[in-house]
Design a protein around this nucleic acid. Structure first.
Lengths: 199, 199, 199, 199
DNA sequence: TGCTAATCGAGACGGTACGTCTAGTCTTTTT
DNA sequence: AAAAAGACTAGACGTACCGTCTCGATTAGCA
């Protein structure tokens, strides 16, 4: 994460300056990491990035848009494939919690959810994003279905919803340090409930 | 929701004036209902309630405290007791969604969660509150255990967490109009997963 | 300047409590001495005196009234009588400057003048007070007239005005540490101007 | 004193907008004229000028700075040059009193002096200003010295001080309507006291 | 090669809200 | 009746951001 040079960035002609773009995204991430959502303001990002406010507003029409891009820039969480749904889901949640806990991603995503509660653009953007993620997480269930672990009439989207909801609430209530036992219990309750020999 | 009289409320001596207290809580609710979390400010509440800002700050140290009291003032959601866990939980979620949807409660609680992402007092207050609610919801599971529906080694708190998480995420992503089929599916997956003859 | 006892003063029945009166005046003086006019508020005095605000407002209708009483409670400056007008006036100014400098009187009187610029009660009270003082200071000139030092047609009130004005402006512009040479020069210019053999 | 147009003033780039500057100074003057020092608040000025409070604080760090600039913006008092010190000084005082009386200048300067009693910035600004004025007034005396009217060893600054003090006290005690006889008497006492053939 | 046009940093602008302070009024309780 | 206590409405304080605006400098691509 290289720092901005002492010499100010200038315009590079009649087109977007990628340096500024990167500097702003990195500054936004840094501000969120250091001061959290409370300290996240366009002013603070502009100050940190040594950028003008209009430059930010030009490319990101709302705080939400900036937050979303910052979040998407960060590395995705790996979706395990162990051949066993319970292990997959427990692994996924543990990876996700660790990712949220150890990087600024947790703060970014929390902020995005909070922002979505008062800003309709953020709300729409979040709905879009979560729609995509749900399908992604649902693949773990679909694979389990294909393996015969899970009943065929199970709605993978609902299962993905349950798992994602569990993750969200832990994020939003500062419980990302949940122990494996509890995570596994939650996952097992759901996995057992949808297993093939049950339904 | 009666309006304030033309004559200003005065002090009623060296003790809290319940009229002011009520007027402020009602104003807070009205502001949230009309302008949402984005327009919810102490100034706006004070203006609407014809109250001085210090009067609000005197009794509610933070926006979160005010939000929480507004939320708690609203009628509680009934916890059904049908003798069947699936029906209990489906009914509970439907009641909760309807309550959030049809009153301003949903907006209030969304705001509280959002506030908790940037204010540590809000965060603490919310943790406090959800702790209490978790035990409450868990009772449905405990009753089912007592009836023999649910395995004895099931952690009721984890189940309550799963259900509450599902509700929160629907609130936070504007999906309170979820159809019964989906709600029932989610509940069934969990209930089956913890049923006695399964574990 | 004894401090208030730990036990709160109580009402002594249907009449004014002199302890409260004294405590309030002393508190006002102490506040002015420590924080100056900037920190002088009825709230601050009430806090310091452990008195209720209404108790202050009952007896002193305005800040100015309180200031005036505080000022008048303080010891008067001696008016010298050396048999020579120049010495009298120089001595008087030196005494006055020292009094203002070394006690809280200076702050009190500055505050009173400042208050009089925005409060008509203060203005009236100050006019009243200065009227009395002018006559008082004028006596030094009248004595000099009687001694034949000063021409008979000199208006003692105008001379008193010149001297008092000089003192006020030094107070108001923080020049109470003026050296004797300058004070004497100012006095001499006036005294020579009114001496008998001149006019 | 033209009113602000209906269209709000906007920024004119990364530099001070003179329209705003003027609007604020005129608003400050108007507020002082209408409500006096008691009603003079940054809020009131901002409201009247249709300006944001931060715009005022950006350019005038304190109420005193604003008052001072309002005062200095108003036309200066003419310093007469009649070839006779008594006439010069009497004329100067009469001009000054009339200026203070007939414009809002008197209120502005009174306010500035009052403000200086509680605010060290005001105090410093006032000291600065009066320093300059003293030299200015002293020139009348210096001219008289050059003409041989006044003894050479007279300290012009002290004389200016006496005259200015006399003016200040009349301003501060609402005596700007003083008659010419009294003004002339005061001036004559001083002028005689310093005349060449006397000392 | 010189002109146009979009972008950059900078920072001022009118506003709104923050959380704190004081003003002056009020009522209850205690003496 | 008067004292203390402290709550009440009201509004100013000085600060932080909001989102918009205009500037002058910069540079690519069109003419």
């Amino acid at each position: 994460m290289h720092e901005a040079a002492d010499t100010a960035r200038k315009s590079i002609g009649a087109r977007r300056n990628p340096d500024s773009c990167v500097a702003i995204l990195e500054a936004a991430e840094a501000v969120l990491a250091e001061a959290g959502y409370a300290g996240f303001s366009i002013e603070a990002v502009a100050r940190r990035a040594r950028a003008g406010k209009p430059t930010i507003y030009r490319w990101w029409p709302s705080k939400a848009a900036l937050l979303l891009e910052v979040y998407q820039r960060q590395k995705r969480v790996a979706v395990p494939d162990t051949g066993n749904l319970e292990e997959d889901l427990v692994g996924f949640l543990q990876n996700l919690f660790a990712h949220w806990r150890d990087t600024s991603s947790g703060n970014v995503f929390r902020s995005l959810i909070a922002e979505a509660q008062s800003d309709r653009h953020a709300s729409a953007a979040l709905a879009d994003y979560t729609g995509g993620r749900r399908a992604h997480t649902g693949q773990m269930v679909e694979r389990a279905k294909a393996r015969g672990e899970v009943a065929l009439d199970v709605d993978a989207a609902v299962v993905a919803d349950l798992i994602a909801s569990f993750a969200w609430r832990h994020l939003l209530t500062d419980r990302l340090d949940e122990d494996e036992v509890t995570i596994r219990a939650a996952v097992r309750y759901v996995v057992h409930g949808i297993s093939r020999d049950r339904m």
